[in-house]
Design a protein around this nucleic acid. Structure first.
Lengths: 208, 208
DNA sequence: TTGTACTGAATGAATGATCGTTCATCATCT
DNA sequence: AGATGATGAACGATCATTCATTCAGTACAA
C-alpha cells in the first residue's frame, strides 16, 4: 500500500489543478533514470526495475508510458540528441547572419557542444554507449525520421563549400564524434587544449 | 553424452600427437566466438551459453580456461588490440629507418590499420563496444600493464615533434579512434575517400 | 452539496525466460 | 593410477514484462 501522497495535486479555486512540485512528470523521470543508470553502469546494469527505483516509481509505471525497454531507450536517445542540437544552435550568434566567418561559427558550435556535454557527462556517456551498440541502426532511423537537427545545422552553404569531400558521418566522426567520446571518457581539457582540439577538427574537416 | 568425437587427435608413430584440424585450440575458439557474438548482438546478446555454442564447446568449457565472463572479455580485448598493433607495425617499412617522411609513415600506419580492421570488421565492432562500456577502465589498465603496443609506436621522436600538444588519448581519438568507429559502423570508404580521411587525420594531429 | 459511476495512471507481486556459474561425472592422455 | 580437459544438467539470481488491483480525479444526476 502507499505510505503517503507527497506533493500530489491540490485544487485551487474553480478549475485547473496546481501541482506542489511543478509537476511529477513521470515519463521524464523514467527517461532521466535510464540515462544516468546507463551512463554509470551500462545497458547491462540498467534493468527496468533499477530504472524504476531510481525514478522513484513502481516497476510497472515505466510500461504505462513506454511499450518496452527498447522504446524507452529510443525516447531517451532522441531527447538527448535534441537537447544537444538545441544547445549548439543557442551557442551561435545568428544576428549578423552574413558576416560570420565559417571557422568562427565552427568554433562557437564546438564550444557550445563541449559546454553542454561536460556540464552533464551522463549525456555523452549514454550517447557513446548507444551509438556503438546494436541499437545504433534503429536509433539512427528514428533520428532521421523526425529530421536530424544536427544535420540541418551542417547544411549551411558557405560551410559546405569548405568541407572535405567525405560522407557526412565521416565528418561527424572527425569532429563532434570525437568531442562526445572524449567527454564520455572523462578526459578533461583545459581551455587551451579545447581550443587546440577545435582547431584540429577544423583542419580535419576543411580543405586547405 | 557426446555423440561423436570429430577431429580428435590421432597418434603418429612414437611420440607427438597430430591433430586432424591442426589443433582444437578451445580457448581461442571461445575468444573468437565471443568476439563475433559481441560484434553482431552486443554484450547483451553474448551470453556464455551462446558463446560456448558458437565455439562448438560445452558451457562449462569456457570456465576451464577463463575464471569468469569478465576475464574472457579482457582476454579477447587484449588479443584484438595486439593483433591490430602487429598489423600496423607490419604495414610500415622499417628498412631505410632514417629517410621515411613522418607523413608517409603515418599514411602507411593508417592504411594498414584500415586494411586490418575492414578485413574483419568484427574486431572494430568489438573494440568500440568495449571501449564505450564500463569495462573500459579496467581494460585500459590491463592494456597498459602489459605495455600498450600502440603507444610505443607513436613515441617515435621525429613524429612526436610534429604533433599538436594534446594528450595522447585525444590524438588517438582524432585518428585511429575515428577509423575504428567508422569500420564498426560499416561505413565503406573508396580508395580516394580513405586517402582524404587519412590526410584529414594528419592535418588534425600535426601542427601546420 | 452529495452520491455514484467512470477513467486512466500507478502499483508491485508474480511469471517464465535466461543469465553467469558450479560441479559431479566422463574421456583421454601420460 | 593420476592428471587434466571437457561435459551439460542444475542452481540461484535476475531479467523484461504482465496484470489484477488500488487510487485520485472528473463528470453527471439528483
Amino acid at each position: 500500500m502507499r505510505v503517503e501522497a507527497v506533493g500530489r495535486k491540490r485544487r485551487s479555486g474553480t478549475g485547473k489543478a496546481v501541482a506542489d512540485p511543478p509537476s511529477p512528470d513521470r515519463p521524464a523521470a523514467v527517461r532521466r533514470a535510464l540515462r544516468s543508470l546507463v551512463a554509470e553502469r551500462g545497458f547491462h546494469g540498467a534493468s527496468m526495475s533499477a530504472v524504476a527505483k531510481r525514478a522513484g516509481v513502481a516497476t510497472g509505471t515505466a510500461y504505462v508510458h513506454y511499450a518496452s525497454k527498447e522504446e524507452l531507450v529510443y525516447a531517451a536517445y532522441l531527447e538527448i540528441k535534441s537537447e544537444l542540437a538545441d544547445a549548439i544552435v543557442a551557442g551561435v550568434d545568428v544576428n549578423p547572419e552574413r558576416d560570420v566567418d565559417p571557422a568562427d561559427r565552427w568554433r562557437q558550435m564546438m564550444r557550445a557542444a563541449y559546454r553542454h556535454l561536460s556540464a552533464e557527462p551522463e549525456r555523452a556517456r549514454f550517447l557513446t554507449q548507444l551509438e556503438e551498440s546494436p541499437y545504433r541502426v534503429e536509433a539512427q532511423c528514428r533520428l532521421d525520421a523526425e529530421g536530424n537537427p544536427l544535420q540541418a545545422l551542417a547544411a549551411e552553404p558557405r560551410l559546405v563549400r569548405l568541407l572535405v569531400r567525405l560522407p557526412p558521418e565521416v565528418l561527424y566522426a572527425l569532429s563532434f564524434g570525437v568531442l562526445v567520446k572524449l567527454v564520455a571518457a572523462d578526459v578533461s581539457l583545459s581551455r587551451a587544449e579545447l581550443d587546440r582540439l577545435i582547431t584540429a577538427t577544423w583542419r580535419a574537416v576543411t580543405v586547405a
